[in-house]
């Protein structure tokens, strides 16, 4: 038996919707954010509509049941049922939407706020656009010394950072579960791999309180490390972060 077009369309949409949920939430164990799912479904619906209506027969077949429902005298009972259910469903939807909930309001943090062009770090005004890791050049010039510096950076990291950011640098340290926002996962390709070293220096040195206004709410509990670490310790730690994760800092120069 051939499935009517309208039912086909509904089935496809339902399939995609539950497909997303099953694949992300169950199989991959990584929930799909509801805000994103709504937009995804909007465009999937648009796509399905396009495929079903690009020719006349398809369109006629698609809207025929709807037309019949509204116009066909023999469908009176169904019509009445639908005309009662639709407003009720809309009302229920509105009620659920408007009902006060205990859920804390959505908070969105810009994870990579644009850095200021200069920042005051260690009492000095530094130009973040030009700031470079003083040790980076050793990677080529003196690999042995570079290794040593990375080791020293690792020591600083283990002493100070791993409690939150984890010993695998995956943002999953012993204290991570207690923090919101959770510590950054440096292994992720979307974090330090996308940034320049000066950016990391700025974020580490000024910590959560150093975030600009657009990154509000700066509920980040990242300490202001310039109060605890020396300048070269931060730079060495940055070397370690990139070395361990295998990422390289963003730069505009060529290799």
């Amino acid at each position: 038996m051939r499935i009517p077009k309208l039912l086909q369309a509904v089935l496809v949409l339902a399939g995609v919707y539950f497909g997303f949920i099953v694949v992300f939430d169950v199989i991959l164990d990584a929930v799909i954010p509801s805000s994103l799912l709504v937009m995804y479904m909007f465009f999937v619906t648009a796509g399905v509509f396009m495929v079903f209506t690009y020719d006349e027969e398809g369109t006629r077949e698609l809207v025929a049941p709807i037309k019949a429902l509204v116009e066909d005298p023999s469908k009176r009972v169904w019509r009445n049922i639908v005309f009662v259910i639709v407003p009720l469903a809309a009302g229920a939807g509105t009620y659920v939407q408007m009902q006060p909930s205990f859920e804390a309001p959505l908070e969105l943090r810009t994870i990579h706020p644009a850095p200021p062009s200069t920042a005051k770090i260690y009492g000095k005004r530094v130009n973040l656009l030009k700031l470079e890791n003083p040790f980076r050049k050793l990677e080529k010039e003196d690999p042995e010394q570079f290794r040593e510096l990375v080791e020293e950076g690792a020591a600083v990291y283990i002493e100070n950072c791993q409690y939150c950011h984890g010993d695998k640098l995956d943002g999953n340290g012993p204290y991570a579960a207690g923090l919101n926002p959770t510590p950054l996962n440096f292994q992720d390709v979307g974090t330090i791999a996308q940034l320049q070293e000066s950016y990391l220096f700025w974020r580490i040195a000024t910590g959560g309180p150093g975030l600009p206004k657009e990154a509000a709410p700066w509920i980040s509990s990242m300490p202001v490390w310039q109060n605890f670490l020396k300048e070269d310790e931060i730079w060495k730690t940055i070397l370690f972060l990139y070395d361990y994760t295998g990422h390289s800092p963003r730069s505009w120069g060529h290799e």
């Binding site: 959505l106 991570a176 996962n185």
Partner: peptide, 16 residues
Amino acid sequence: TLVLTNEELKALGGPH
């Protein structure tokens, strides 16, 4: 940057 509810944030274990 994903817009996440607190529930989702917890389930994911972070904004990433």
